[in-house]
Design a protein around this nucleic acid. Sequence first.
DNA 1: TTAACCTGTATTTTTTAAAATTACACCATC
DNA 2: GATGGTGTAATTTTAAAAAATACAGGTTAA
Lengths: 156, 156
Amino acid sequence: MKYSIQFSDAIHIMLYIEIYQNTDYLSSTKIADSVQTNPVNVRKIMAQLKKSQLIQTQTGKANPKLTRPISQITLLDVYQSIEGNTNLIQVDPKTNMKCVVGANIQSVLEKQYDKLQETVESEMAKVTLDTLVKDLVIAEKQQRLDNDDIIQRYEI
Amino acid sequence: MKYSIQFSDAIHIMLYIEIYQNTDYLSSTKIADSVQTNPVNVRKIMAQLKKSQLIQTQTGKANPKLTRPISQITLLDVYQSIEGNTNLIQVDPKTNMKCVVGANIQSVLEKQYDKLQETVESEMAKVTLDTLVKDLVIAEKQQRLDNDDIIQRYEI
DNA sequence: TTAACCTGTATTTTTTAAAATTACACCATC
DNA sequence: GATGGTGTAATTTTAAAAAATACAGGTTAA
C-alpha cells in the first residue's frame, strides 16, 4: 500500500503548536523543519485544521494557536479534519457490472468497510491529544536529559 | 489518501471462486474480467492467498478452490494474507530527530495506531465470507431477475 | 505429439496520486 | 521599505501501484 501521512503530520503539527506555544518557533518553516516536509505543505495542512476550527492562525504572522485545550481535542477531530468522511479501506470502484460478483461486490464491501470505520473512529474519539503529549514526554525522558522545561511542564 | 485496493480485490476473488466453483469460469483471465484488472495481477493476489493457505491452485489448470468453507474464512484472514501485519494508518518515517516533537512522535503515534489496528482487526475477525455472499445475493435479487441458480443456492 | 490454454513468476513500462517546488499577492513588524 | 511571514494557485517531481511483457513449464484433448 501507499499511504498518505497527512494525518500523522497533522497530529505532529498540533502537538508542535502546543509544545512550542509562546515561542518564536512557530513559523511554517520551523514547523516544516520538525515534520521534515516543506512549508507549503505545512500551511496546507494547517489551512485544513483551521477550516475545522482546531487551530487559529493569522496571515502574515507566525502565531498559530490551538482553539481548545489538548484535553478536548481527539484523534477523531484531526482525522475528520484531514480525511473528511473517507474510509480507511477503499472499495475497487472499477468492477464488471455484467458479472454477479462484480455487480454487487462494491455495495457489499462498502457496508462492511463502513462498519469497520465506525469502530475505528469510535476508538479515535477516545484518545485526546493530552495523552499523546504525556506519552511524548515519557518517551523524551527515556531518551535524553535535554528539554527539562518541556518535560516539567507536562509531567504528571 | 491513495489506497491500495488489493484487499478489496482479494475478497472479490475469494467470493468469485466460491460462487463459480465447478464451472469453467475460473481462469485468471475470467476472474480478471470480473475484477476489471489484468490476469497477472489476479495470479499475484492468488499466489498470496495460496501462501496463506486460503486457496488451493494447480499450475497449468484453471481450478482454484477455497481450502475451507466460507463460514470459516474471515475478513481478517484475507487482510493478513494481503497486508501482513501492516497497519492501516502509517507513521511518517521521516521526522527531525533534533526536535523534541520530531524525535518522539513516531513511537507515540505507532502506539496509538497499533491499538486502532487491534480494534479494527478484531472486528474483521467477526465477519465471515458467508455473510458477504448472503449480502451479495440479497443485493443481486434487488437488482435483477437473472442468476436464479446462484440466488437459490445461497438463499437463507 | 502438438496445438490451445493455462499457471507462476520475473522484469519492464505505464499510470497516477502525493509531495515538493515555484510563484506571487498581500499582511505584520521593526 | 526591508525582512519575514501567511495563504493559495499552478506546475513539476516522485515513488508506489498497476499494467504490460516475456517466458518456462504444466494440462488436456484432438
